[in-house]
């Protein structure tokens, strides 16, 4: 089992997704995984760098991998799927176009630092069984649906994690936390991603569809593992309600918050109060 990983929070974990960062840190602490900061890390370039030759994003992301390597670490964990994609793309571009990549990056790069998501760490390195044994406050009689979004499992050859069409890693972790997991057909439907600001109508429609399905299967809450998905589903839920004349009232928690609560970490430490849609009903025993 991995005991020590480099930690790349990504920019959203310093702002809108600060509760994701808080809950990742608290949970890893309790589970005995040491998160080593990447000194002076920089933005990975995310989606915007993809309007230009991938070399730019690859070099921006690559700097972080190179720093992690210089600290003697060979695994970088990040909570954000977009950052994960950027970090992995850096390794890919290094393999495909090594000399151009090194020219732009301008520092030593070995290409052997593996990037994984926090979900991957929880599922593959710790595992639902261990988590289940550590649970003190199971979510009894609650239904939580897992929403994976686009990038964590796709495309399969690149993600090398779980199943691209019907992923189950979060399902198993939610079950370990004591909640029921209804079948959820929209596990990997796109929520609108980074188009929230530029094309809000598109996001309203796509996010609305996901919330509608969650409500239809009787969910008390959704579990997510992506800052963008979380923002679209939670923070924008009011906008969706206005745009689609709906009355969704579904809490959207990070998977790390759900497991953290079940393990008995206090809600303030996990940043539960920072979520937009109120979670009170989820914590009342039925």
């Amino acid at each position: 089992m991995l005991k020590r990983v480099a930690y790349y929070p990504g920019c959203s974990c310093e702002g809108m997704a600060i509760e994701y960062d808080q809950s990742v840190r608290a949970l890893c602490y309790v589970l005995g995984i040491e998160l080593v900061g990447i000194p002076d890390w920089n933005c990975c370039g995310s989606t915007p760098s993809h309007s230009y030759d991938p070399l730019l994003g690859a070099a921006l992301a690559g700097r972080n991998l190179a720093i992690a390597r210089s600290q003697g670490l060979d695994v970088v964990m990040t909570p954000c799927p977009s950052c994960l994609k950027a970090l992995k793309t850096a390794n890919q571009v290094f393999r495909e176009r090594p000399s151009e990549f090194l020219d732009v990056l301008g520092m030593p790069f070995s290409g052997d630092v593996r990037a994984i998501s926090v979900l991957q760490l929880l599922y593959e390195e710790i595992g639902p069984n261990l988590i289940q044994k550590a649970v003190k406050f199971p979510f009894k009689n609650k239904k939580i649906v897992p929403y994976y979004g686009c990038l964590l499992t796709r495309p399969p050859a690149f993600a090398q994690f779980d199943d691209p069409e019907n992923p189950v890693s979060m399902d198993r972790l939610i079950e370990a936390a004591g909640a029921a997991v209804p079948d959820f057909p929209h596990k990997t439907e796109c929520c609108g991603a980074a188009l929230g600001i530029t094309q809000r109508d598109v996001v309203m429609r796509l996010t609305g569809r996901i919330l509608d399905m969650a409500r239809a299967v009787g969910a008390d809450a959704l579990a997510v593992a992506c800052p963008l998905c979380q923002q679209n589903l939670d923070l924008r839920q009011d906008q969706v309600n206005r745009a689609l004349k709906e009355n969704f009232n579904l809490p959207v928690l990070y998977i790390t918050q759900i497991i953290g609560c079940a393990l008995g970490i206090d809600r303030k430490t996990l940043g539960i109060e920072k979520l937009a849609v109120k979670t009170d009903a989820l914590f009342q025993s039925a």
């Binding site: 002076d40 920089n42 030759d53 070399l55 070099a59 700097r63 732009v104 301008g106």
Partner: peptide, 19 residues
């Protein structure tokens, strides 16, 4: 502001000249 801003600027510059 990160400390390594110079490194970032250089990545952008080298990228632009490469392009």
């Amino acid at each position: 502001k990160i400390k390594g801003l110079k490194a970032i600027e250089e990545i952008f510059k080298r990228f632009e000249s490469h392009r």
